[in-house]
Design a binder for these strands. Sequence first.
DNA 1: GGGTGCTTGTGAAATCCTTCACAAGCTACT
DNA 2: AGTAGCTTGTGAAGGATTTCACAAGCACCC
Lengths: 219, 219
Amino acid sequence: MKDFTSTPSPVKHIAEPTVRRLSGYLRFLEAFDAEGHETISSGELARAGGTTSAQVRKDLSFFGSFGKRGLGYGVKDLIASLREILGLDTRWPVVIVGAGKIGAALAQYRGFGTHGFDVVGIYDTDPSRVGTHLNGVTVRADGDLEGDIAALTPRIAVLCVPGEAAQAALDRVVGAGIRAVLNFAPTSLVAPEGVTVRAVNMATELEVLAYALTNESRD
Amino acid sequence: MKDFTSTPSPVKHIAEPTVRRLSGYLRFLEAFDAEGHETISSGELARAGGTTSAQVRKDLSFFGSFGKRGLGYGVKDLIASLREILGLDTRWPVVIVGAGKIGAALAQYRGFGTHGFDVVGIYDTDPSRVGTHLNGVTVRADGDLEGDIAALTPRIAVLCVPGEAAQAALDRVVGAGIRAVLNFAPTSLVAPEGVTVRAVNMATELEVLAYALTNESRD
DNA sequence: GGGTGCTTGTGAAATCCTTCACAAGCTACT
DNA sequence: AGTAGCTTGTGAAGGATTTCACAAGCACCC
Ligand SMILES: NC(=O)c1ccc[n+]([C@@H]2O[C@H](COP(=O)([O-])OP(=O)(O)OC[C@H]3O[C@@H](n4cnc5c(N)ncnc54)[C@H](O)[C@@H]3O)[C@@H](O)[C@H]2O)c1
Ligand SMILES: NC(=O)c1ccc[n+]([C@@H]2O[C@H](COP(=O)([O-])OP(=O)(O)OC[C@H]3O[C@@H](n4cnc5c(N)ncnc54)[C@H](O)[C@@H]3O)[C@@H](O)[C@H]2O)c1
């Protein structure tokens, strides 16, 4: 054991790849649980997550001891622990900015809700879209954004506006108090310190694939 | 200079994070070029890409010397070099499997085309969707998949089918010769050696944000 | 033509992440 | 109760990536 006298919280600093893997473990465990399994070994989790058993154990050991030696991990227990670690023991209200093709698809995506995220508002500048219904949520005018964020206190915003409008949309949601943003526009945004911005960039994903195909030379 | 007598190709092995950053540089450079700038320094690129100037220079130095000391990098030259490195000096035909909300949004996404990827086919099992047009491409029956892949020789497939159907869809496109896949279903897939599968997982992205918010304790 | 100010390219150091290897611990079975 | 067979948890080693720091090079100006 280390000398933890100066760190009251048990968590020091977890790298993003680790958090991504934890999320992957959680997703597989939910399916595994639905199949009726009671326990799982680090090796099985590793195969599902595309990593190694040692990596799985290391990842989990950052947060405590969840397994039983000789047996493995209790599936339900591990799900609960991972949910708590990831901050999913509460539901997260989310706003979507931009009700175009991608914004609408996301608003109607049920996977959001089953993972603890609730779309509480979706906003668009186009008057012809305002007032339409998407999966129970009504599209509202973008002028309502600040007031709604103050009232509904979502902590995450998803940006689905055109690239030219993305930085302005980010500035607005940040100004309204949002500190975590998922950006679908293919623009790199600058955010103030303390605001986490993650980008989902289709072009980058395809380019990584193109690179892999171009350089598939060896083993 | 190193001793390269045993490596005919100048590229040894580039980590995926590096490729991702290169893709980001390229995207910013295209916008920077459109604004009429002639040159850019590693520091400017770093700020846009959320990294450091040393990182930018290291990333580029894997592939050669593209800059001029005291001046920076020629924007157009660097764009051309990055395109070649990433394998974007040719166009990539792509097939989409699943013409639902996400598949349709992607098929109509113009950003695909402007980055060198052409949607040459989109497939669905639902007879009511087959025959509809999306951005100039007609939805075809999923039975046409193998024949079309043989005829059109796309090398990348994008999976937009429900989670239960994703592994089967992967197996089919791989069987038909595809070796690079972008998966939107929230399922972890197993692919044979030599096939690159990348997953875009909304739940994971949001969970990383939730984790960041939950542990936003320290800078 | 020499000096000044910037910026690149790159070894070396530092940091971060992954893999290895094994003692410790649990269960089940004889 | 003792033993056999797995599987976890974790220091230590190993690799990989990032950061540091600085010499070398170019342009512009006086
Ligand atoms: N369609 C895709 O598959 C896809 C894929 C990846 C990324 N993207 C990106 O996602 C973004 C949206 O794409 P899309 O295909 O949904 O485009 P879209 O044109 O269908 O939708 C954009 C919507 O944003 C609205 N809008 C514009 N400015 C706004 C503002 N300031 N505030 C609120 N709403 C605003 C528009 O009225 C429109 O309804 C783009 O940046 C695009 O590059 C799209
Ligand atoms: N909608 C979103 O915003 C969103 C976001 C992230 C991930 N996803 C994932 O993307 C996938 C598709 O989501 P969606 O919202 O577009 O669902 P959807 O139901 O609108 O579309 C799925 C489509 O796939 C077709 N399909 C089913 N089996 C098929 C097969 N074997 N071959 C070809 N086509 C087949 C269906 O007919 C349907 O048209 C799902 O796995 C979902 O979890 C969706």
